[in-house]
Write a protein that binds this DNA or RNA. Structure first.
Length: 459
RNA sequence: GGCGGAGUGGCCGAGUGGUUCAGGCAAGGGCCUGCAAAGCCCUGUACACGGGUUCGAUUCCCGUCUCCGCCUCCA
């Protein structure tokens, strides 16, 4: 089965075929860099990272654009409150997002364009829309005329006549539901020159301009959080298609991370910030937790659920360690067919994880049964699958080989374990247990295996 | 008011018109172990509520209740 994806615009699951042969193009709505990233922000990025890895795994070249909205009302307001330049405020938080994505193992995008760097392209797009009669300038602002575009509302399933009041009323608007492409600047605000006056970008315009700049007038996938369906994506789609571009062929939307049943947002104060999470948990375990549920299902965040997920991850990690401890290096093999089928079915990560765990169980059983060859084969499959999910415990990214970081620690522990083995051989279990307790107290877990003791650093 | 999502076993979280089960975590029993740990095996008999369709529904239809999101900035 080939990859099938759910498209918000058509509300069905369709086969995905890249428009341009072996290259898939993705545009993902990144952050408005006004604050510190929380796990909700990162969840979406992780979902699209898994999709990207799956496309790569299937031999496609993937062009991925993840934008940075570095100018908007909130950035200006917050920077002003903090008494800092708006551009510094934006740059600071852009780095915080970048760090969060990296910490959780997201592959870097092909490019992360900033809105402020693409004003030229925005002006061009506005001009095309005005020329085509879909937009108009009024008092330095530029608006998109929603009634001029028949398809308006198709993406979000809204009917124009049922829509409640649109953006804030402005005098120049011909219809209250028209949305702003460009807003004139007030004195003291940052601004850029345009044929219609000094001003700054409206929110929606940048994505259309940047997506088509880098990916062309038509591209494969446009992703973002469900809250962006309306108005953001509806408006993007309207302005681009009205301008004559094909724009996104598939619209993907990831669900929320909620806390106590509510959407996570700064105004509610129920935010779980990434920098703190990464201090408290292993990033790979947080990643595991966030990508296991289906991307269109809401995750109700809880510490308990995260801890459970961490246990699940450690089971996989442990298996790979057991096999490499017994048989040496484990390479990445081929993913299981059922795993591929699961991901091909609209990125069915829950089923994919089930396959992963079943493979781990079989591999453990093979190991227990003395079938080393089979255990290695299954471990190689496990590695391949975890690699697609960005969770490979043996990858350079996530491997926690204390020995490579500290030869001194490794020598010390190995020495103690050798002493313990001698004590055990002499059936001096009291001494053996004292040594093990010492290690345990130092945060080092010891496991005896037929091939000798294995140790790992906990926490 | 309009549009959309969700209610599954102790917990997380999939899925399907029908005897065989998602998967994980936790629990109990067993095997293994000097003891542990890890691992393996076994156990739990779930699908919000009320109707209907059906030989048979958790899965389809209708209704009810509850929760959540979007319609204003938002991942």
């Amino acid at each position: 089965m080939a990859l099938h994806l759910y498209d918000t615009a058509t509300r069905d699951v369709r086969e995905f075929r890249p428009a341009r042969g072996a290259t898939a193009s993705m545009y993902v709505c990144g952050a408005t860099v006004q604050g510190i990233p929380h796990i909700g922000h990162v969840r979406g990025a992780l979902n699209y990272d898994v999709l990207r890895r799956w496309l790569l795994h299937n031999g496609l070249d993937v062009l991925m654009v993840r934008n940075v909205t570095d100018i908007d009302d909130k950035i200006l307001a917050k920077a002003a409150d903090a008494g800092r330049p708006w551009w510094e405020w934006a740059a600071t938080h852009e780095r915080a997002f970048e760090d969060a994505y990296t910490a959780l193992g997201c592959l870097p995008p092909s490019i992360a364009p900033r809105a402020t760097g693409h004003v030229t392209q925005m002006i061009e797009l506005m001009q095309r829309l005005i020329d085509a009669g879909h937009a108009y300038a009024a008092g330095g602002d530029v608006y998109f005329s929603v009634t001029s575009f028949d398809d308006y509302g198709v993406l979000s399933g809204q009917r124009l006549d049922e829509m409640q009041q649109g953006e804030t009323q402005a005098e120049g608007k011909r219809d209250p539901r028209d949305f702003t492409l460009w807003k004139s600047s007030k004195p003291g605000e940052p601004s850029w020159p345009t044929p219609w006056g000094e001003g700054r970008p409206g929110w929606h315009l940048e994505c259309s301009a940047m997506a088509t700049t880098y990916l062309g007038p038509e591209f494969d996938i446009h992703g973002g959080g469900v809250d962006l369906v309306f108005p953001h994506h509806e408006n993007e789609r309207a302005q681009s298609r009205a301008a004559g571009d094909g724009f996104a062929r598939f619209w993907l939307h990831n669900a929320w991370v909620t806390l106590s049943g509510e959407k996570m947002s700064k105004s509610l104060g129920n935010v779980v910030a990434i920098p703190e999470m990464v201090r408290r948990y292993r990033a790979v375990e947080l990643r595991y937790y966030l990508i296991q549920p289906h991307y269109r299902s809401t995750i109700e965040y809880s510490d308990a659920a995260l801890s459970e997920a961490a246990q699940g991850y450690r089971r996989i990690e442990q298996f790979l360690r057991r096999v490499s401890g017994a048989s040496g290096e484990v390479r990445a093999g081929k993913v299981a067919a059922e795993f591929a089928a699961a991901l091909d079915d609209d990125l069915g990560t829950p089923q994919a994880f089930a396959v992963l765990h079943n493979t781990v169980r079989d591999g453990n059983a093979a190991l227990d049964g003395g079938d080393a060859a089979k255990s290695v084969e299954l471990a190689e499959t496990v590695r391949a699958m975890t690699e697609v999910l960005g969770l490979d415990p043996l990858s350079e990214r996530w491997a926690e080989r204390a020995g490579t970081e500290s030869q001194a620690l490794a020598d010390l522990v190995d020495g103690m374990l050798a002493a313990r083995q001698r004590a055990r051989a002499e059936r001096d279990f009291a001494t053996a247990d004292i040594i093990r307790d010492q290690l345990t107290n130092a945060g080092i877990a010891v496991e005896d295996t037929p091939n000798g003791p294995l140790w790992t650093v906990r926490d």
